[in-house]
């Protein structure tokens, strides 16, 4: 597991039923592209977050494939419908096999 990998999300605490909300997500990760050379002159192997998914109560909102051209600390912003109260689940998949996730509850009101 890479150092200092920490997911974070920005989700409103409540929404009206059926409302569309904007969600911002970011995970601290170096996103080593595999294109850079180290001090020894050899290529530094690729090590990136290659997939991100967002779900609400088990239903998919967005599923993103990330390539090495995504910047350090991958940032993804998108919209979600909130049909009822429940829980968002956000998951990031690392090249090294690690999986990072975080959840956020939202109320209706």
């Amino acid at each position: 597991m890479a150092d200092d990998v920490k997911p974070r999300v920005k989700v409103p605490k409540k929404a009206a039923a059926g409302e569309t909300i904007t969600i911002k997500t970011l995970i601290s990760h170096k996103m080593e592209s595999g294109q850079r050379k180290g001090k020894d002159g050899n290529l530094i192997p690729r090590s990136i977050i290659n997939r991100f998914t967002a779900e609400f109560n088990g239903k998919s909102i967005i599923d993103v494939t990330l390539e090495a051209a995504i910047s350090t600390n991958p940032y993804i912003e998108f919209d979600s419908i909130v049909p009822e109260e429940g829980e968002f689940k956000f998951t990031w998949y690392d090249d090294d096999g690690s999986v990072y996730d975080t959840s956020k509850k939202i109320a209706i009101g």
Partner: peptide
């Protein structure tokens, strides 16, 4: 602050 990458280091 969520968009400011500098705040990641503030958190650290």
């Amino acid at each position: 602050d969520f968009d400011n990458p500098g705040m990641l280091f503030v958190e650290q």
